[in-house]
Structures are given as C-alpha cells and as structure tokens.
Amino acid sequence: MPHPGWSRFSFEGIGTHWEISTSSILALEVQRQLLGTVADYDHTYSRFRPDSLVSALQRGPGSISLPGHSVALRDLYEALYRITGGSMTPLIGNSLNRLGYDAGYTLVPSGAPEGAVKWEDVLEWSGTTVSGKVPLVLDVGAAGKGQLVDLLGEVLRSAGYLDFLVDGSGDMLHSGSLPVTVALEHPYNPKQAIGTVELDNSALCASASNRRAWGDGLHHVLDGITGQPIQTTVATWTMAASAMVADALATALFMVEPAALEVEFDFSWLRVFSNGTATFSAGFEGRLFT
C-alpha cells in the first residue's frame, strides 16, 4: 500500500482502474500527460477499437507504423515466443475472439478452441513496422499493460516526481527511498491475501485465470499452440526491474518452467497451481501465509 499522506490520482483507462500515488500532489499538467499517455496507448494497441492502429491489420494484408516503444515490446515477445515454443504469441487475439473474448464481449464461443497462426508464417515485425501477410489480430495484452505502467513512470520521473507507486489494477511500479508492502491477492477470493511482498524500486505484476474468466473453464490465458485455456496454473506473480518484463513473464509462467525463463531474464516469481500448491523463488520466500 502507498505510504500514509501520499497523494492519489485515480482514473479508468484501457479497460481497467489506475491509481497513481505520489509523495506530493500531482500538477494538473502532469495529470493530463498521464491521461494522454494512456489514451495514446489504447488508440495504438486496443484490439477492441475499430479505430486503433493495430485494428488495421484485421482488415487485410498490409503494414502499420507503431510508436518507438514498440521496439522493446517486439523484442520481448520474440524472446518469449522462442522460449515457450510458440505458446506465448502476439497473435493469440483471434483465438481469444473465437472463445468469446472479443470486441463485443459476447463471452460466447463461436467454435472450438483453435491455435494461433505461426508468427514466422504471417507476421513481419521489424523495428516499428508491423506487416501482416494475411488479416491478423495483434494482441499485446500479455505485456502491454506492464509497458504502459513503465511509460507512466517515465512521465512522473520526467516531471520531477521520484517517489511514486503506479498501480494498474495490480500491475505496479515503485520508485522512491521507502519501499511499500503489497498484498498478494488470493486467486479464489479477492478479499483475502495469500501473502505480502516488499516492493523497492522495482515492478510487481500478476496474472490469474480468474481475472477474466467466463463460461466453463474459459479464461484469457491461452496456449498459443492449441488455443486452449491453461488449467494447471491459476495465478502467478513476478518481480523485475520493469513492469513490461514482469507482466510478460507472469503470463509466460503459465506455459513454461521458471528455469527456462531465468536463462535470459532476471526476476523473482511465485506460482499457484489448481491443486492448491505453490512454488516460488527466493524473492518470495517467507512471504506466504501458512
């Protein structure tokens, strides 16, 4: 939780609730910059908006030009696509649409689960240019909210705010001289916590199958190879230097063992399984309630 006496600025954006806590009151101009950053990100990447940049790829073969921060997003997705053998992919959007998690939020499957098309067959993403050989649904949701958390942190630092906590519905970035203690939400009961963690100039992100779930066994964390919702893992938490990396790794932990990710990424992690057991790295040791 933020420190007592800190100022809070709350708003809605990209379909979720945000709270920016700072040690001093945010200037109105900085508030406008934060809101503008969220609006720009939504207009760029939302697969639910017909006027977004990425929605142009759904209408047929062609290319779009993304902002400069898309380069880091592309590099991260490329690494995790490789490490997970294609299970984690930015082309999972059509599989989500098929199961009912679509622009109209129908939440009614239109067919059986179907895996995503292979990146190497249909998508060229070089720098800020993204080209599709066929109509594509580009979905960067597994890392996008984390990247937006980082971008809001950059806005605050550029404006001289060095003590802050950016909280995008549980995806957090902390900066400052005093750490904050954060509760880890119970995956089956949002009113309870399974433990706490101390956040000290780093990011904490979570992924849980209960956050966006509908129907019988349907939720938003899919295996890109099969298009099936993953059932063995129910919740993950990760801590890393950036929220973008933490956010992406929280999803990747549904698909591969932590050791496969630790070869290339420096992060701490916690996984909770459907049978009630949990595994965790040293960064979470001693933080869980018994």
Rank of each mutant, 00 (worst) to 15 (best):
P2D: 12
H3P: 11
P4L: 09
F9S: 10
F11D: 08
E12C: 05
I14T: 14
H17K: 09
S21W: 07
T22C: 15
S23A: 15
S23F: 14
S23G: 15
I25M: 12
E29A: 06
V30A: 03
R32W: 15
A39V: 06
D40I: 03
D42E: 15
D42L: 11
D42F: 12
S46E: 01
V54I: 12
L57H: 03
Q58W: 06
G62K: 02
G62V: 01
L66R: 00
V71K: 00
Y77E: 00
Y77C: 00
E78D: 12
E78A: 12
E78Y: 10
A79P: 05
Y81A: 01
Y81M: 02
G86F: 03
G86Y: 06
M88D: 02
P90M: 11
I92M: 01
I92E: 00
N94C: 03
S95L: 06
L96I: 00
A103D: 15
P109Q: 07
S110M: 05
G111E: 12
A112H: 08
E114P: 08
G115Y: 01
E120N: 07
T128N: 01
T129A: 04
S131L: 04
G132E: 00
V134W: 14
A142G: 15
A143I: 04
K145M: 01
L148F: 01
L151I: 09
L152V: 12
E154I: 00
G160A: 08
D163T: 09
G168C: 14
G170H: 14
G170P: 13
G170Y: 13
D171L: 15
L173M: 15
S175T: 05
S177V: 11
T181D: 15
A183K: 14
E185G: 03
P187H: 02
N189T: 02
A193R: 06
V197M: 04
E198M: 13
S202I: 06
A203G: 13
A203N: 12
A208I: 08
S209C: 08
N210S: 14
A213I: 07
D216M: 09
G217H: 06
T226V: 00
T226S: 04
I230H: 03
A235H: 05
T236I: 08
T236V: 09
W237F: 13
T238M: 01
S242N: 11
A243V: 07
A243M: 11
D247P: 03
T251S: 14
T251R: 10
L253R: 00
F254P: 03
A259M: 11
A259I: 12
A260M: 11
E262A: 14
V263F: 08
E264V: 09
F265Y: 12
D266F: 10
D266R: 14
R271D: 05
V272Y: 02
V272L: 06
N275Y: 06
T277V: 02
T277D: 12
A278I: 07
T279W: 05
T279F: 04
T279R: 13
F280K: 09
F280S: 08
G283W: 07
E285K: 11
G286E: 04
L288Q: 09
